[in-house]
Amino acid sequence: MIRFDNTSKRYPGGHDALSQVNFFIPPGQMAFLTGHSGAGKSTLLKLIALLERPTRGQVFVNNQNLARISRTRIPYFRRKIGIIFQDHQLLFDRTVFDNVALPLIIAGSPRREVGKRVRAALDKVGLLNKEKVYPITLSGGEQQRVGIARAVVNKPALLLADEPTGNLDPELSREIMHIFEDFSQVGVTVLVATHDLDMISRMPYRQLTLKAARLVGDTDPVETEASA
């Protein structure tokens, strides 16, 4: 689903945020991306979402070389992936329903379909009763769940999350992670960047570790168990 092929990213100013990164995440896999602050996690996700372009090497999503996607095609590409941000990126002058509906409106879905899909997405994150309220009245955890609902309302095959639990207490963080597991179980590829090693160490998923722009660790507990 995701393949990095000797990929490097140097920001203007000469700072190397990623340096010769190679990995492959097969379809349907759930993986964590870890590393200290500044290690390059966000940069890696941005390359997948075409928010940045690599300076060297290539990125493939669904066997498509992202270098081949022109600026005008980027919106259509982004509609196929769900992105979740640490700071939610919700619109505070619109209701929860309207926020979650936005990707469908952008894609031009018919009206009836919009209502159905938005409620299905809100149901999955347990916020069905909040559709008419404004995000500002919600707690941090609830806001993050609205963000997740918006990311999955299009039924994307790939979910990216950049420190989705960064501002949440452990209890709420676990809830959020469970939501991701649910999506993973129905075949969605999930890549979650986090530095909450404590929590993910207890979860049976693959871990990619970045350190100072380089990929220094790639462990998969399932494979380790199988080979043991």
Binding site: L51, Y76, Q89, L91, L102, I106
Partner: peptide
């Protein structure tokens, strides 16, 4: 902010 969010979730320039 709104424009940024639109672009993030796949809003075209025309939209």
């Amino acid at each position: 902010d709104e424009i940024v969010v639109m672009k993030l979730i796949g809003g075209t320039d025309a939209f």
